[in-house]
């Protein structure tokens, strides 16, 4: 009987635990970007990156 009660409670607990909302929620805060992090931001603005784009600009858009 006790075993059965414990089993029922555990089962119920187990089943109920599935009802919890996932924790992967983005809570909005005004003015704060909380989207995915763009890997471009890691290189954007670095010297190498800028140089590459400048060269590319001169190659394709500057008068030849």
């Amino acid at each position: 009987m006790r075993v059965r009660t414990i089993a029922t409670v555990m089962l119920a607990a187990l089943l109920l635990s599935g009802c919890y909302e996932t924790t992967d929620v983005v809570i909005h805060e005004p003015g704060i970007y909380k989207g995915a992090k763009d890997p471009l931001l890691a290189v954007d603005g670095t010297a190498g990156f800028e140089e590459k784009l400048s060269e590319r600009f001169m190659e394709g858009q500057a008068p030849r």
Binding site: E21, T22, D24, V25, V26, I27, H28, E29
Partner: peptide, 9 residues
């Protein structure tokens, strides 16, 4: 609003 579930979720 802050507790609202966002579109992604």
């Amino acid at each position: 609003l802050g507790k609202a579930v966002d579109r992604r979720t």
